[in-house]
Amino acid sequence: MRYRLILCCALIFVVLFALAPPAVGQARPDTESSSFRAGLSFGYLSRTLDLNEEVQDVIPKMTALLASLVLEYEFRPGFSLSAHVGYSSSTFDGLAFRRLPYSLEIDTDSGSIGGILLGAEVEKSVLGGAAFGVDIRGQFFASLGLNKEWKIPGLAVEGSAKGKPIWMKASVGPVLTYRGWEGVTPFLYPRFDYLWGNFELGQTVQDLKGSEKKDIKGKSPFALGLGADFEFSSSLRLRAEAGLHPRPNGIDYSFMVQTLLAL
């Protein structure tokens, strides 16, 4: 809850900041007016989950593959807003639902669950010099899971379970860029990165019915992104990023590749 509050404040700050006039000394030339870009984004994330439960036979985890169409609008150089629409495929491990009449467990053998992916991203240059720059970036993604149905094995009668995960991910932080190379801009993106949501699983075995909603959240609220923007031409850009999410006793990770073409 505390993290979500901080995150909301941070996102509001980013939006307000983005609407402010360009920074003094900003290095990027203001040669173009606003413009649209469109492209594709692919991502992967693997996050250890905190279920706030005492009994945990397996460390709960979520991995997700993300693919989305991206539409970016650049209000002015150094200030852009993007929207994502796409598909997510989430796999869970170690989720035990013990409040159902028959306790059920979702693990990697349970398969992936598809979902609609929606996202938004805002980025604004804050400081700029000849070689180094500082931007601020905020992102929000939501995966609205589609219902998946399983047969409950081993019972004397037919039984089924239906599950639907919904998760969200919000991150905000400064982007430290190096602009000294032609066509490649490496960056560091230390950020507050919060993942939360829920997984609702229903069960029907003849007249026996039950439903359980389990809150999930990522184990670590911080991440460090390492990546680069590749400007292949004035109209084609590719961004690649690897994210490291440190947590107690380990590290989670994520990857993202995004191409954008000027329209």
Binding site: D109, W150, A156
Partner: peptide
Amino acid sequence: SGRDDYIGYGRINMEKALVPIKLSK
């Protein structure tokens, strides 16, 4: 096969009644 008049649904199984059942695709 199935429920019958001799042993009903069958011989009870504590594992299935108590332990989380893994769902597989």
